[in-house]
């Protein structure tokens, strides 16, 4: 296990930015943190980096306490901030070298190779670059050191679709190298595309933790009945999402034949099926019909 949090909480007076987060992330895993603004994603990441002192609980990376031993933690972590501000007087190369020297590590071959892939001119002053180009430079400084853990806070902000794909490719390559990637995002499709597991936060609390592969196996089933359908069967992985105007919407992650067998004896008039997907799970907590 690379990362562990136990009852990790951060309170500001009466308000709670993060409450009782219990989480483990394995080596070589790509882990997605999901949630709307104010759900506690960034607070969680900042606690891991030792920027914030936990109000209670703790977090450990490779056994090092994220607050008390934060230098050892940061030696093992590369971080891409969500709100990106760079030293504008430097060029991209100067910035990456400067941060690399602070880290006492730089891989020059990787730098030039990645710069070509991201189509960046590293010798232009950062002040002259667009926000998207600056983000690419910041991404390079995260990807170059090959740390055990890469933390990215909304990394695809301001990236064009091509560069977004390139980033996701880099995340996959990092996983191949055995690096762990922890990233937060609002964009469900990219999380679903690249992550092995996702955690959904709501108002500072972890409300859902799931393997993405399970989501791919799950289905969203819309069934229309002529009249009232009978009681839902007791099946593992079956969940009623909505019942409206003769339509029944179900989420189901179990074997399909058992559910179809039940549907076959109902007054079914119409049936539609689609992959469950992350969106369905996410909206369980953050949509109009979110659970209380």
């Amino acid at each position: 296990m690379l990362l562990r949090t136990e009852h990790l909480s951060k309170h500001y007076g009466r308000s709670s930015a993060l409450d009782d987060l219990n989480l483990t992330v394995e080596r070589g895993e790509v882990f997605g943190l999901l949630g709307p603004n104010g759900s506690g994603k960034t607070t969680a990441l900042r606690l891991l980096l030792g920027f914030l002192r936990p109000s209670s609980g703790g977090a450990w990376i490779e056994g090092h306490d994220c607050w008390r031993d934060s230098v050892a933690v940061r030696r093992r972590v590369a971080y891409l901030p969500g709100e990106l501000r760079l030293y504008e007087s430097m060029t991209g190369r100067q910035l990456i070298y400067f941060l690399g020297r602070l880290r006492e590590a730089i891989v020059e071959v990787d730098l030039d190779r990645l710069a070509r892939r991201f189509d960046i001119d590293l010798d232009r002053p950062l002040a002259q670059l667009s926000s998207g180009m600056k983000r690419k430079v910041a991404l390079l400084q995260v990807l170059v050191p090959h740390t055990p853990l890469v933390i990215m806070d909304e990394p695809t902000n301001a990236l064009d679709p091509t560069m977004r794909d390139e980033l996701l490719l880099q995340v996959r390559e990092a996983r191949k190298r055995g690096q762990t990637v922890l990233f937060s995002s609002h964009i469900l499709s990219e999380v679903e595309e690249v992550c092995d597991r996702v955690a959904i936060l709501r108002r500072g609390r972890l409300v859902h933790l799931q393997k993405v592969s399970e989501l791919r196996e799950g289905r969203l089933i819309h069934a229309r009945f002529d009249g009232e359908a009978g009681e839902l069967p007791e099946l593992n992985g079956l969940r009623l999402r909505e019942r409206r105007d003769g339509w029944l919407t179900l989420e189901y992650t179990g074997p399909l034949p058992t559910l179809l067998a039940w549907l076959a004896v109902q007054p079914l008039t119409e049936l539609r099926m689609e992959p469950l997907g992350l969106k369905a799970v996410y909206h369980r907590y953050h949509g109009d019909n979110a659970e209380a």
């Binding site: 980096l49 920027f51 230098v71 050892a72 940061r74 030696r75 972590v77 590369a78 971080y79 901030p81 709100e83 990106l84 501000r85 760079l86 030293y87 941060l99 602070l102 880290r103 006492e104 910041a138």
Partner: peptide
């Protein structure tokens, strides 16, 4: 204020 501190303090700098 400029937001550059977190870039700096994300490095292993005590």
């Amino acid at each position: 204020d400029r937001g550059t501190l977190e870039l700096l303090m994300a490095q292993p700098l005590p």
